[in-house]
């Protein structure tokens, strides 16, 4: 029996599901190994139970919480797919701004004032915080990154169909920078979050000449005090450091810690 696999999207850009579809060289092979029963990006079908549910997107509204709990109850394994589901991603920056203020920034004051009188928008003001999936239901595996990494997705599928457990080492991005013989971003005068961020991405950003902004989340053993001190020594203001940490990790302890 091929495992039944379903994809669900919450608040996110659906880019991770697209990244799955973009695994063109292996997608047909994967479809030979698993049975996809729900996938809004590709097909439409519903099933009562799944072996693996992939959750894309962060969780905002109470109705999303209920929907997520329902999916968890119907799934043997639940996988957080991508940075939104794993760590809240960029939208969690709104955790530090009142919803009404946020609405004003995006749509202007006139629209905001109008929306505040419209009952259709009221649920929006009730939403208080962007949350990662793990804050609401137990997550079995995390496919980190913005977007998720196809090689890790393939590794997870292989492990699940062969009865083993996928393994994602909790090592820094630096490990892959060294394997790629990258010049360290700091040696280019950049400031980088690679030392405190989960690797597994192949250090793709640094390899291509950029820096790591930490989209895969903060390592459990991260030496945050040392990292902050290093960024200060490199001339970053505390406000800039806060921005840097909050970019992807606002829902994570790192993003929140700086607020204290």
């Amino acid at each position: 029996m091929k495992p039944k696999v379903a994809f669900f999207d919450f608040a996110g850009c659906e880019g991770c599901q697209l990244a799955v579809l973009n695994c063109e060289d292996v997608l047909l092979d994967i479809l030979g190994l698993v049975d996809i029963v729900e996938f809004r990006e590709a097909i439409s079908e519903t099933a009562p139970r799944f072996d693996v549910a992939f959750i894309e997107g962060s969780i905002h509204r109470e109705e999303d919480v209920e929907r997520l709990r329902g999916i968890r109850a119907r799934s043997t394994y639940l996988v957080a797919l991508g940075a939104c589901a794993c760590i809240g991603n960029v939208q969690a920056r709104s955790n530090f701004i009142a919803p009404a203020e946020n609405f004003k920034r995006v749509y202007g004051e006139v629209d905001r004032n109008q929306a505040q009188t419209d009952p259709e928008f009221w649920p929006l003001w009730a939403h208080t915080r962007v949350r990662a999936v793990k804050e609401i239901v137990p997550v079995d595996f995390e496919l980190r990154g913005c977007p998720m990494v196809p090689a890790e997705f393939v590794h997870l599928v292989k492990a699940l169909v062969s009865g083993s457990i996928p393994h994602f080492p909790a090592n820094a991005v630096c490990v892959e920078c060294k394997a790629n013989e990258n010049e360290c971003a700091f040696d280019r005068g950049e400031t980088c979050m690679g030392q405190i961020t989960y690797g597994g991405c192949g250090a793709i950003c640094v390899t291509n000449g950029y820096r790591c902004d930490g989209c895969r989340g903060v390592l459990p053993h991260a030496n945050l005090a040392a990292h902050r001190q290093l960024l200060r020594e490199k001339g970053l203001s505390d406000a800039l450091i806060q921005n840097r940490y909050r970019l992807f990790c606002s829902a994570e302890p790192l993003g929140q810690e700086i607020r204290r």
Binding site: A159, S162, G163, S164, I165, P166, H167
Partner: peptide, 10 residues
Amino acid sequence: AGSLTQVFHG
């Protein structure tokens, strides 16, 4: 006790 030994058990 892990990924591989789980497979051995099967």
